[in-house]
Simulated scan of single mutants.
Amino acid sequence: MNKQSTLAPHESMELHEALNFKTLCLAKSKLMQGLVFDQELKDLMQKDVVQSTQAIAEIQALYAKAPFQTQVPQNRPTPILN
């Protein structure tokens, strides 16, 4: 079987979307732990944090095979205040 060393552009975009989603889930679980008083629910949320961190690491490893990369701009655009 022939292994590809890079991902197709659509696969890269799908991984990017999955990475964004898992990052958002991780942030939400971490933030909500401070608002929860039930220990069992806190434990479940902590388990979700650990699993999400592992999933993010796996997705990042796959995302490194993306055929394109972009430079992060040094300057941010000026906001329009009007």
Score class of each variant (00 low, 15 high):
Leu7Ser: 09
Thr53Pro: 00
Leu41Ser: 11
Lys28Pro: 00
Glu11Phe: 02
Leu19Arg: 08
Val36His: 03
Ile59Pro: 09
Leu81Phe: 09
Ala61Cys: 01
Asn75Gln: 12
Phe37Gln: 11
Cys25Thr: 10
Asn20Tyr: 06
Asn75Ala: 07
Thr23Cys: 11
Ala57Gln: 14
Asp43Ser: 12
Ile56Glu: 08
Pro77Phe: 04
Pro73Glu: 03
Leu41Met: 14
Lys28Phe: 09
Gln39Trp: 00
Ser52Asp: 09
Val50Phe: 04
Gln39Phe: 02
Met13Tyr: 10
Met45Glu: 12
Cys25Asp: 09
Ala64Thr: 03
Ala57Tyr: 01
Arg76Leu: 13
Gln71Val: 05
Leu26Asn: 14
Ala61Asp: 12
Leu44Gln: 13
Ala57Ser: 14
Pro67Thr: 05
Leu44Pro: 00
Val49Asn: 10
Ala27Asn: 12
Ser29Met: 02
Pro73Gly: 05
Leu19Ala: 03
Leu35His: 08
Pro73Phe: 02
Leu19His: 11
Thr53Trp: 01
Leu7Pro: 04
Asn82Phe: 07
Asn82Val: 08
Phe21Ile: 08
Lys3Trp: 07
Ser29Glu: 06
Ile80Arg: 13
Leu31Met: 09
Met32Tyr: 04
Ser52Cys: 07
Phe37Arg: 05
Leu19Pro: 13
Leu41Tyr: 10
Glu40Phe: 01
Lys47Ser: 11
Pro67Gly: 10
Asn82Pro: 08
Cys25Ser: 04
Val36Thr: 14
Ala55Cys: 06
Asp38Glu: 13
Glu58Cys: 05
Ser5Asp: 14
Ala66Ser: 15
Lys42Leu: 04
Lys65Tyr: 03
Glu58Met: 10
Ser12Lys: 11
Thr78Met: 05
Lys22Ile: 03
Ile56Trp: 07
Asp38Ala: 04
Ala61Met: 02
Asn82Tyr: 08
Pro9Leu: 05
His16Tyr: 05
Glu14Cys: 04
Lys3Glu: 10
Leu31Gln: 12
Val36Glu: 15
Glu40Ser: 08
Met13Gly: 07
